Simulated scan of single mutants.
Amino acid sequence: MENRKKSWVVGITGASGCIYGVRLTETLLSIGYDVHLVISNAGWRVLKEELGWQAANREETLKEKFGGRSGRVFYHPIGDIGASIASGSYLVEGMIIMPCSMGTLSSVAHGSSDNLMARAADVMLKEGRPLVLVPRETPLHAIHLENMLALSKLGVKIIPAMPAFYYHPQNLDDIVNFLVGKVLDSLRIEHRLFKRWGDEHAEQ
């Protein structure tokens, strides 16, 4: 058990902002974690529209995009309800859905395990493992907010895709890295993705 390679589940849905999930996966792999990656069909559509990714050969695309890092990526099709991560007996550190669509958030909030992403999230809840959702939608109506509240009461971390500007971001990468860094902070994973408030004083 002590030699088990630590791994995280990462979900990428069809919400805009797929670069967040891509950067999170890149960072976890570079740190040395394995990543079990689940991408919804709408998520693949957004990866094509926003990043130009090709979905014809999905596993080859992921190997090209995420290869050459310390950790390994394991791709699980959204319909593979019998995948390893669908069982609580399979040990992972936790799960992050980034970005998280309102449809997926609703499925998780109501325990609707009708695909692998929702089932894997349900496993995190029933096993008491960390679950982080990064909703990317605006404006929000009452049902969205009620679903977030219900999940928050269950211990799920809700980290909306809201960038900060006190650190004076210079480009889009800075903004993406800040949000990914906040997710990693919530999971107590060390990183150097952004400059923290007060760092300039510590360096003096």
Results as ranks from 00 to 15, higher is better:
178 F>Y: 09
199 D>C: 01
17 G>I: 14
87 S>C: 03
83 A>V: 14
188 R>C: 07
148 M>Q: 10
204 Q>N: 05
28 L>I: 05
4 R>L: 12
114 D>T: 13
131 L>G: 03
148 M>R: 02
196 R>M: 01
81 I>Q: 07
43 G>C: 05
149 L>H: 03
107 S>L: 13
67 G>W: 02
161 A>Y: 03
18 C>T: 13
160 P>L: 06
124 M>K: 03
159 I>K: 10
172 L>C: 02
37 L>V: 08
48 K>S: 12
1 M>F: 08
190 E>A: 14
182 K>W: 13
71 G>F: 09
8 W>T: 02
62 L>M: 12
78 I>R: 05
197 W>L: 14
41 N>G: 14
163 P>I: 02
93 E>W: 04
59 E>C: 01
159 I>H: 00
122 D>S: 09
22 V>W: 02
77 P>Y: 10
129 R>M: 11
160 P>N: 05
31 I>V: 09
55 A>P: 00
158 I>G: 04
29 L>P: 05
166 Y>H: 15
203 E>I: 13
204 Q>G: 06
182 K>Q: 12
131 L>R: 06
87 S>I: 11
148 M>E: 03
128 G>R: 03
159 I>Y: 08
127 E>I: 12
184 L>E: 05
115 N>F: 06
52 G>A: 06
40 S>Q: 05
97 I>K: 04
156 V>A: 13
171 N>F: 09
171 N>I: 08
179 L>C: 03
70 S>Q: 14
18 C>A: 15
131 L>E: 07
106 S>M: 10
93 E>M: 11
17 G>S: 15
115 N>A: 05
114 D>V: 15
87 S>A: 12
35 V>P: 01
105 L>R: 09
181 G>D: 08
183 V>P: 00
20 Y>M: 12
58 R>Q: 13
12 I>D: 02
172 L>P: 00
171 N>A: 07
155 G>L: 07
95 M>A: 15
57 N>P: 00
16 S>N: 07
95 M>F: 04
51 L>S: 08
150 A>K: 12
16 S>D: 06
150 A>Q: 15
173 D>R: 06
118 A>D: 04
110 H>N: 15
129 R>W: 13
163 P>N: 08
26 E>M: 11
70 S>L: 14
194 F>P: 01
38 V>D: 02
131 L>T: 14
177 N>E: 06
40 S>E: 11
164 A>W: 01
190 E>L: 13
202 A>W: 14
4 R>G: 04
71 G>L: 14
